[in-house]
């Protein structure tokens, strides 16, 4: 596979402005931090398998007028395939899911995931779970076209990006932890939605 995750991120990032992003894991966190600096407060950086798309769906359910993007991974989605069935039933109109499928657990050195053998097709699984708009992109042009379609869709839209295993060289590390990232993200949602999520304590 010659398409890189970082090049895909560079294609996706300029398309985003008011959207909210939840992402994981490992190297993709640092790559998104570099590829989309304007989306830093609008992005929740997570380090967990199986939670990213469910969290993004919860966010999309709470803010149905706002486009939410899940930047998930092959390992992360495989950890909890059940979310695809839930999305198939719930049909969130404002959720765009990108699955970075590098066919390995890159952050721990690259042992293969179940997609590496060539038989497991995540987009086909998603279609079978009821997500009619579930596709696989193998070139940057294909990926970019799916981003355009997915960000304008009125149904849940999933694209599996088959990407190379390498990490983009020369990028900066993100130094914040999950708690700081949560506060940055929540304050951004509060400011842009005009709401209070984590309010002041009572005086009593």
């Amino acid at each position: 596979m010659s398409m890189t995750r970082y090049a895909c991120m560079q294609a996706l990032a300029p398309r985003l402005k008011d959207e909210l992003v939840i992402l994981s894991l490992g190297g993709s966190v640092d790559e998104w931090y570099n590829a989309a600096p304007h989306m830093r407060p609008a992005s929740l950086f997570q380090q967990q398998l199986g939670c990213v798309t469910p969290q993004a769906f919860g966010l999309a359910a709470g803010l149905p007028h706002r486009r939410v993007i899940s930047l998930d991974t092959d390992g992360g989605l495989l950890f909890n395939l059940g979310i695809l069935a839930t999305l198939g039933n719930e049909q969130p109109a404002n959720l765009f899911i990108v699955v970075w499928d590098n066919e390995c657990y890159q952050s721990i050195g690259g042992p293969p995931t179940h997609t590496a053998a060539g038989r497991v097709d995540l987009a086909a699984i998603a279609r079978g779970a009821g997500l009619e708009q579930a596709h696989t992109a193998r070139t940057l042009d294909e990926f970019d076209a799916h981003c355009a379609a997915g960000l304008a869709a009125d149904v849940p839209y999933l694209v599996v990006a088959k990407v190379a295993t390498g990490l983009q060289p020369g990028i900066k590390r993100k130094h914040s932890d999950g708690r700081e990232d949560k506060y940055i993200f929540v304050r951004h949602v509060e400011a842009t939605e005009g709401i209070t999520i984590m309010g002041p304590s009572e005086h009593n």
Binding site: L44, G58, A61, G62, G82, E193, I197
Partner: peptide
């Protein structure tokens, strides 16, 4: 489909306010 998925969805709902 499982309670862990439900927990993560609830976490996402929290982030929405």
């Amino acid at each position: 489909t499982n309670e862990g998925e439900g927990a993560a969805i609830c976490g996402g709902v929290f982030l929405s306010g």
